[in-house]
Amino acid sequence: MRLSRQVESPARRSAIMRAVKSRDTAPERAVRAMLRSFAPGYRLHRKDIPGNPDIAYVGRKQAIFVHGCFWHGHDCARGARMPKANADYWRAKIARNKARDETNFARLAELGWRTLTVWECELKDKDALEKKLRAFF
């Protein structure tokens, strides 16, 4: 038996999307837990740094962004999946997010900052992610 998805009303869908957190997400907390063991001393969501990085090492000028694959258009199964409803809106929204990310990374580079993007899907292989994080430092 195949389960079908219920089509949400626009108001309900809007409420659901508003509830999606932008900070202190599960992937972000998992990355921070990993960093605590070998690179403590980070700061969170610094608004005085371009792009408001999720994790910042101010003295080292290093910024880590933990991105959701869907929201930032990652080239993986989850990031490539586009909603069928209101597809034009979502394509434009994700394109704006990607353009904003590129602008922020360029601004940080101009200021001498190094950046690292951790994708949500990378949390599936914690050993590889820890290697990536250690290499960044």
Rank of each mutant, 00 (worst) to 15 (best):
R18N: 03
R81P: 00
R96Y: 01
I16C: 03
K124M: 06
G112T: 04
A87G: 03
C69K: 13
S4V: 10
E102H: 08
A63H: 05
G79E: 09
D24A: 11
T103R: 15
A87K: 15
L35H: 11
R32E: 05
R12C: 00
A19N: 15
Y89Q: 05
L129A: 07
Y57P: 03
D88L: 01
R81Q: 09
R29F: 09
G112D: 07
V7Q: 08
R43V: 02
R5A: 11
A30D: 05
R81L: 06
D125F: 00
E110Y: 03
D101N: 14
R107T: 06
R100N: 13
P10E: 01
Q62A: 13
Q62I: 10
D24Q: 03
P27C: 05
Q62G: 08
F137H: 13
K124L: 10
R114H: 07
R18P: 00
A19H: 15
K126P: 00
F65P: 09
I64G: 12
R18M: 06
A77N: 13
E110V: 01
R134L: 02
A80E: 13
R100S: 05
K84P: 00
P83K: 11
W113V: 02
G73L: 11
P83Q: 03
R36Q: 13
M1I: 07
D101R: 11
E130M: 04
A87R: 15
K47R: 14
L44Q: 14
A77Q: 12
R107D: 10
K47F: 00
R2I: 06
G51M: 10
F38Q: 09
E102F: 01
A26D: 12
R91V: 01
A30M: 03
T103W: 04
E102C: 04
A85I: 01
D48S: 11
R134H: 02
W119F: 04
I49E: 05
D75R: 13
P83I: 07
A87N: 03
T115D: 10
R100G: 05
K93N: 08
C69N: 05
G79K: 04
E120R: 10
G79Y: 08
M82G: 00
D54N: 14
A87H: 13
C76Q: 04
F136A: 05
A87D: 08
F105S: 11
M82D: 05
K21R: 15
A92Y: 01
M82K: 10
V66D: 10
R134E: 07
R46W: 02
R78K: 15
D75I: 04
R91P: 00
V7D: 10
E122M: 09
M1E: 04
D125T: 02
P10I: 02
V66E: 06
C76S: 09
L123I: 06
R78L: 07
R114V: 03
H45M: 02
V118W: 14
A106D: 12
A128S: 14
D101S: 15
P83M: 06
E110N: 14
E120I: 02
A26F: 03
T103Y: 06
R96K: 15
Q6N: 01
K61D: 08
A56C: 09
M17L: 14
D101E: 15
A106V: 09
E122T: 06
G79F: 01
R96M: 03
S22T: 08
G79R: 12
R5D: 07
D24P: 01
G73Q: 03
K131P: 00
I49M: 07
F65M: 14
R29K: 15
